[in-house]
Amino acid sequence: MGVKLSYIDVCHGSKVVSNNFYIEHFRRQDKDIKHLLEDVMGRDKRYMLNDDESVLQLVIKAGKSVLKKANLEGKDIDAIIYSSILPEYISPATSIFIHKELNMSPNVMCLDVNANCAGMAIAFENMSNYLMSSKHAKKALIIGCDDDNAIIDPNNELCYGNYGYAACAMVLEKVDEDCGLIDNQYYVNTDIVDKVLYPSHGFSNFLKSKNLDELYLKWLPFSVENLISNAVDIMEKMIKQNGITKDDISMFCFSQLAVKNIYKIRQAMGISEEKSLYIGNKYGYTGTSSPFIALYEAIEKGKVKRGDYVMIWTFAAGSQGIVILLKY
């Protein structure tokens, strides 16, 4: 028995914005971000929303698209998890709105999760185990989409210009096959817990603030060296413990936050570019959905096929990281 990642699909904003917009934006502030944006982060363009688009519309579109791809209807799904740093609604849960738009049955677990950029990977791990243990649930829908642009400080060159809009949706299905989640490992390092704060003084002070500047998301400089070394260590141990080799893995799907991070992991582990796609230059950084969009692109390009091993690594502010080994 396994939990199969049966289908995966991606829907993105319809407007394409190039780096030139952001380079010029910060040039007017006497800041040169070209090296940071292009060489460190690896950005080229990103998908943004038009004025008549919303994140909720994008999420619903992705949900409908993956169900159509799977030849399923909303009533066939037993659980839905929506992962986002900033859902359209926190009351009721945005997953309830998705439930309504997808015409799901009454006996469905609806859950919103926020583990920042690691949210969708954590949702995948949790939902895989839930389906294995549940007596009733057989199929689950996971959708991830972030709307960081709504709260980003336009004067913060570390984050403004990094993000794009793309929702990723996937169907998990309990099947009588050797597939799905094989292993996973979390790690937490709170040394940088104060570097990406939102709200900057907590929700207890959010509505009391008279300073508009405090209502923006900002990044303070932080090092990812410890995160990368931990990730490499966990991945190498996990590969060995599960009786396979690095060469047995068809694709490594990493966080798309910065191409420099991927370069460092490739070098440390001896992984080729072909087996560790970087798609942040096309989509921008999409937060929670980013490693699964990399997986989607790898599947679409024929680089990942049924029965292949895939390794996922991503991390979130604070910081929390997760490594997943799965059999597609």
Rank of each mutant, 00 (worst) to 15 (best):
E53K: 11
K327W: 12
I312C: 04
G318W: 00
T190N: 01
G287W: 07
T314H: 12
L227S: 14
L56S: 14
A123I: 10
I90D: 12
G180V: 04
E157S: 15
S14C: 12
N50H: 06
D44F: 08
D146R: 07
S229A: 11
D78N: 12
R266T: 08
L86Y: 15
K100V: 08
K260Q: 09
G144D: 09
K61D: 13
S128H: 08
D112T: 10
T190I: 01
Y283I: 03
S250Y: 08
V224N: 15
S272T: 15
I271P: 00
V113T: 09
A317S: 15
S83H: 09
A115Q: 12
L215I: 03
A150L: 11
I60M: 05
L5D: 05
V10L: 09
Y47C: 14
Q57H: 05
M269Y: 12
Y296L: 01
S200W: 06
F206D: 02
G63Y: 09
C11E: 03
K31C: 04
D308F: 08
N189Y: 04
G302N: 07
C117K: 04
S209M: 06
K31A: 07
E274V: 00
K68V: 05
I244L: 08
K282S: 11
G161R: 09
E24P: 10
Y328L: 08
